[in-house]
Design a binder for these strands. Structure first.
Lengths: 165, 165
DNA sequence: CAGACTGTTCAGATAATTCTGAATAGACTT
DNA sequence: AAGTCTATTCAGAATTATCTGAACAGTCTG
């Protein structure tokens, strides 16, 4: 059974190409919602989809974006521990693939954010005069909220299994 | 014991004012990290800090921002169920305070995001040809990750107690 | 060594977000 | 009804984030 679009037959490879491009586009949007630049999200999506290491130049070509953009997007993803750079003997290019613990790393990054938020609130509380009871109680609730989220994320981080490459 | 800054004595009220302004500034930054515009975060912070309902005009004045900005920021916060608008008899202005279930609402918003991400991945999987086994397995892991996060957030949403106003 | 190729950096261009002032409409007061 | 005060909307300004091209430094190849 072949998929048909605009009356044209598609072979399996073309079909996968189209699904992949669509996936990449969508993940770019999702990434933006999570505080990542679109392009980093698209690179991540590409690596998830392909599985095997992808060359620097291929990323630039396939995502229709300059090498400079790839370079900075890659740096961000590496800093967050989401991808890793691998060397292929006999090829000068850098190759990239998902980090073994990419999903755990994603979770830990979010966790760092919620812990930071909690710390900011606690710091504010420490500066309050003794008699500001109402404010203290409200900030305490707010901090408790971030603490609950942090606990949940911490739990997720330990549970998340390594993605099968 | 009075706090001292630059050799000047501060009374308790001034001290609290300073702590509050600092808190508001910080929460604006935190909010940006969570995909909220800075000003919405600052309004939210102000409402947490003050506890009692705050007037539309007061928000504009205290945050040194136009009424138009307050209006749009407020709308966003209302849409997310984080604050509620209250009427004070004998005053034409709108007043705002934290929603009773503000923290639960925050959690649910995040949850909606992770569920949406999972749905996008599942949708992509449904379009794959039968024989794309490797891709399917990787997308499945990715979806499972978002599912784990979603479960955790769902759990948080039910556990989060109402903030004490 | 000269030439080709690679990834990084950075100033400036481009695009997207966020804020403002003016216009508008509704509601209250006198 | 006329005059205030209110919140909202929206076009454009201001700000911020993102992308690019060029310059660069390193590495390999012939």
């Amino acid at each position: 059974m072949q998929a048909v679009i605009d009356g044209e037959q598609m072979n399996t490879t073309e079909q996968i190409d189209q699904v992949r491009d669509d996936f990449i586009t969508r993940m770019g949007v999702i990434a933006m919602g999570e505080g990542l630049p679109r392009m980093s999200g698209q690179i991540f999506a590409m690596l998830v989809f392909e599985g095997e290491p992808i060359a620097f130049g291929a990323l630039s070509r396939r995502l229709s974006v300059s090498r400079a953009t790839i370079s900075t997007s890659i740096r961000l993803l590496e800093e967050r521990g989401l991808i890793r750079r691998v060397n292929k003997t006999g090829d000068r290019q850098d190759y990239f693939q998902l980090a073994d613990d990419a999903y755990a790393a994603m979770t830990k990054y979010a966790l760092a954010g919620t812990r930071h938020a909690k710390a900011e609130i606690n710091d504010t509380m420490s500066k309050l005069p003794e008699d500001a009871e109402g404010v203290r109680a409200r900030l305490d609730s707010f901090a408790a909220f971030y603490d609950t989220i942090s606990e949940a994320l911490d739990d997720v981080a330990t549970r998340v299994s390594k993605p099968k490459i």
